[in-house]
Design a protein around this nucleic acid. Structure first.
Lengths: 238, 238
DNA sequence: TATTTTGTAGTTGTAATACATCTTACAATG
DNA sequence: CATTGTAAGATGTATTACAACTACAAAATA
């Protein structure tokens, strides 16, 4: 007889696969609530631990959302969900920080262009609020850095394109950690100046100016922090 | 005193965020082994359940791989690693593609611009080869569609920016499924015409023309297949 | 009756403990 | 020197218990 390799099977893998099938086939439809953990334990005949691990893998994939006290739900399949696959790449491929910033410059410049085209009253109001928040937070590096990112988030939202919003969020997730250092180096005025001008361009529906300013803004930032690749904190956990 | 809202926090979320930071910052490098679950329990001061749930979310995202008996490792960013997180993409059948295509238009146009700036002899050669391959495959929808995508991949490579290259790869993975339908609708000549002109612009280092042509190219495609959202099979995967 | 408050059942979140199973490394054995 | 056995360390699974949150119904109140 022939010998075939035995692959160790994890129960949670089996649960994961079966749950995936149920979602793919539509038996568990988008937006619907899946059986409770207790019910799944009964159905699969396994422990709650195994069920929960499978669920959390699906959460990581953007397929399920857990609402504590309510239940676990199948996500509507939106473009921004599959953009989750970008995260691993941008997260791990810290290949070079400068490449990520270059990518960001493109995204943000074109986001500004699109925002100038599509922003409605609500978007404008959000942008103005974000800008005012920055002015108010001048002097506090941490809060200013957060407000700065919020302005960029508001620009992304004004595009009304959920893929762009998601990609922006991923980029900002990565920048959050070092944004304070950036503010520390670049100061407050540069960001405030550009943000003000960009908002003005968006209000005026001046697409090319908005894009141009945003590109300048990012480039100026990149220039000032060009040595930041080594700056990124390498501190160990704990 | 004032009362401020308390937002419920999940410990596993906090663990997840911190682990993510460690990977983003490169403290846990690709390919390396992260601390054992027991060690993480000690470091975070939480239960093993919370640690494992955070880990499984990262597994679902394609960031970590668990090897039983050995430990848990940060994934190298290889195509095969993020490919298996594509479940959400496979489920997108029923979702709208328009936002994704809009995102693609931006990415590709700016990629073309950057390619015109940075392409070296090798890149040019790769582009020419891809273009010739398209001409040769004229008549065979399937092979032509593949060759078409290869040209765009070659443009991305000419940017010499690994983030852009990988983001392009993701977009193309998604498009592969419907690329044949696109070719079927749009025919061979349009793509060949634009690709030829784009290559010419890249050779001439004419950045703005390269970007403009690529944007036109994608827009033209989008226009022709504007009805494709309903065209895509609504059937579940499986 | 209409409204507010409270209680309760159901659900997910966390913890602690125990043991099973797998991988690796290394010592013991022949 | 090759093989086998063993121990250490890692993840996998199960069990039990309770905490925290949500939604909804029941009760109290106006």
């Amino acid at each position: 007889m022939t010998i075939t390799a035995i692959k160790p099977k994890r129960i949670s893998d089996e649960v994961f696969e079966q749950m995936k099938e149920h979602i793919i086939t539509g038996e568990w439809a988008p937006g619907s609530k899946i059986p409770s953990e207790h019910e799944l334990v009964e159905l699969f005949g396994v422990s709650r631990v195994s069920v929960r691990e499978a669920i959390h893998r699906l959460v990581g994939m953007g397929v399920l959302t857990i609402r504590r006290g309510e239940g676990t739900f199948v996500n509507e399949v939106l473009p921004e969900n599959y953009m989750n696959t970008l995260l691993p790449i941008l997260m791990i491929e810290s290949a070079s920080f400068s490449e990520t910033l270059e990518f960001r410059a493109i995204m943000e410049a074109e986001s500004a262009r699109m925002a100038a085209k599509r922003a409605d009253e609500k978007d404008i109001a959000r942008l103005e609020k974000a800008l005012k928040a920055m002015e108010k937070k001048k002097g506090n590096i941490q809060e200013f850095a957060e407000a700065d990112l919020n302005f960029h988030v508001a620009v992304a939202m004004a595009t009304h394109n959920s893929v762009i919003i998601k990609v922006n969020a991923i980029i900002h997730d990565m920048l959050k950690k070092i944004m304070e250092e950036i503010v520390d180096i670049t100061g407050y005025e540069g960001g405030l100046y550009y943000h003000g001008k960009i908002l003005e361009a968006i209000k005026n529906r001046d697409e090319s100016t908005a894009a141009k300013l945003m590109r300048e803004h990012i480039s100026a930032t990149v220039d000032k922090i060009s040595g930041l690749d080594e700056l990124k904190s390498k501190k160990p956990l704990a």
